[in-house]
């Protein structure tokens, strides 16, 4: 572990920008979200978390799968990134959400080449949360504001510096590249780091006990409790479009003259069209079923298939649902009813 003094952070970022395309939280039209930076000044450092999910850097809302020239009829693939990428300032929950997406995009060894081209090309500099939001419940889903899981390098903000720890091999290499800018920590700073770490976890005041939930849910598909949640839901995609673990997409062809491009773009289980079949039959015709799908997918089906919950407790869906349908309330209710 070493320190980077706050007044040298600019040099730190500049050094990184020599080697990498650096993505960091910036203010884009009223909202903080990850974008490629061209100067360190753009970076917002006072942020609880970004508004949009950083997983969009790896699985963008819309991307071209390939283009076809109808005269030749051989699918071509879009060019791949060549400069390595650093994502600076991603939060621990979001870094974990990438590990969750890794599982889906690598299910049974079938790799999603678009996702992994970006994923394997990127290094995550995770920023620990010293000021978690009231809607954060990462500690309830097996993580925490100082979780190093998924990080390549881990940063913690101290009063005058950032503590910087290499976590992975990739992280160590970056650590070396910026070594000149780093300093050793004093005893006091070490203590302050330990103190901040402890305090951060205590600051998470939003706890949902999820012990045994997924086992319980296995038998609860037809439980009457599902009648309670969906009434206020307007079936917009907000909760899933901002959720870092949501990975559903649609595929469509677009044609212009002799040119066809096949694109994929986010889709969402809260929409009626998501499951509508050509015959008109819809296996999930009601919002009740769709709300159940969202909850069950994250807290039961995903556990069944991948051994962990597909929610990292980031709170984005809570903060942004236009009708304040709070996933924590749903989970608490599911825990309390008789299965």
């Amino acid at each position: 572990m070493k320190l980077i003094k706050k007044n040298r952070l600019k040099d730190f970022l500049n050094t990184l920008m020599n080697y990498y395309d650096v993505f960091a939280p910036v203010l884009k039209h009223k909202k903080i979200r990850f974008q490629k930076i061209s100067t360190p000044e753009e970076v917002i450092l006072e942020y609880s978390n970004t508004h949009n999910k950083p997983t969009e850097l790896f699985f963008p809302q819309c991307e071209v799968l390939f283009e076809v020239d109808l005269k030749e009829n051989i699918p071509e693939q879009p060019p791949k990134p060549d400069k390595p990428v650093i994502v600076f300032g991603i939060r621990p929950c979001d870094a974990r959400s990438l590990q969750i997406l890794d599982k889906v995009f690598h299910w049974d060894g079938v790799d999603d080449p678009y996702y992994f081209a970006r994923r394997n090309n990127a290094i995550l500099i995770v920023m620990g949360c010293t000021e978690p939001r009231s809607t954060c419940f990462c500690t309830s889903v097996g993580s925490g504001p100082m979780d190093h899981n998924g990080a390549d390098l881990f940063l913690t903000e101290l009063p005058e510096a950032y503590a910087i720890e290499p976590v992975s091999e990739k992280g160590k290499a970056v650590f070396e590249q910026v070594n000149d800018l780093l300093e050793d920590a004093t005893e006091g700073e070490l203590k302050s780091l330990a103190e901040l770490t402890r305090r951060a976890e205590q600051m998470i005041d939003s706890e949902v006990n999820l012990n045994g939930l997924s086992d319980k849910l296995r038998g609860m598909f037809d439980h009457p409790v599902w009648d309670e949640f969906h009434l206020s839901c307007i079936g917009c995609g907000t909760c899933t479009y901002l959720c870092p673990t949501c990975h559903c997409f649609d595929i469509l062809d677009e044609k212009k003259g002799n040119y066809v491009r096949r694109i994929r773009f986010w889709d969402c289980c809260m929409y009626p069209y998501f499951t509508l079949q050509s015959s008109g039959h819809n296996p999930r015709p009601t919002q009740k079923q769709r709300v159940r799908q969202r909850v069950m997918h994250k807290f039961q089906y995903f556990v069944e298939n991948f051994g962990e919950i597909a929610c990292v407790g980031c709170g984005r869906c809570i903060l942004n649902c236009p009708v304040n349908l709070d996933i924590r309330s749903i989970l608490k209710r599911l825990m309390e009813v008789k299965g």
Binding site: V104, F105, W107, D108, V110, D112, H247, C248, F249, D250, I251, R264, D267, C269, F274, T275, L276, Q277, P283, Q293, H297, Y301
Partner: peptide, 15 residues
């Protein structure tokens, strides 16, 4: 039969 897109367990709609 379920509505499908990716066919490889990624697009999330056929469960």
């Amino acid at each position: 039969e379920m509505r499908m897109k990716c066919g490889i367990g990624k697009c999330g709609r056929c469960n």
